[in-house]
């Protein structure tokens, strides 16, 4: 079992998110996964996933937490965002939003940059994988 190179647990409070994301971005840069302007888009994907976990999955319940973990995996970086919610979620069941539709753009952005996006209902973990230069060229998510 791979050991994460970054791991943090935060309460279901949006105010706790920026510090967790800052730490993750610093470690992603140290591990060579992002550089320069790629930070903007890496931050976007991390925040969209964490906001979904805090608001939709955990319902901003202060008694529930969100865990963020980052792993080196050969040619890919794996990001895991674990919630403590009870509802069901399937990224595949969320269609691309229509132009004037209010919701669904966070997942649309994640799919654009990530090579793979998967949610395990059993483990309550959203797993996102990306390769080098995914934030420059787009990841063309295939899962």
């Amino acid at each position: 079992m791979n050991t994460p190179f970054y791991s943090i647990t935060i309460p279901s409070d949006l105010e706790a998110m920026p510090e967790a994301v800052r730490g993750a971005l610093a470690r992603l840069a140290e591990h060579g996964w992002i550089e320069g302007e790629e930070e903007f888009y890496a931050r976007l994907c991390l925040e969209e996933a964490i906001v979904n976990a805090i608001t939709h999955a955990n319902g901003e319940d202060p008694g529930r937490t969100v865990q963020l973990r980052l792993y080196d995996e050969d040619a890919e970086c794996r990001i895991e965002v674990q919630d403590e919610g009870t509802g069901e979620f399937s990224p595949d069941a969320v269609p691309e939003p229509q132009p004037a539709q209010l919701r669904g753009r966070g997942l649309q952005l994640i799919r654009h940059f990530m090579n793979k996006v998967h949610y395990s209902q059993e483990d309550r973990v959203l797993t996102m994988r990306f390769r080098h230069k995914a934030f420059t060229n787009g990841g063309n998510c295939d899962e």
């Binding site: 931050r43 906001v51 753009r105 966070g106």
Partner: peptide, 9 residues
């Protein structure tokens, strides 16, 4: 400098 999808909504 930065905005997220919540702002698009």
């Amino acid at each position: 400098h930065y905005l997220s999808s919540a702002v698009l909504t």
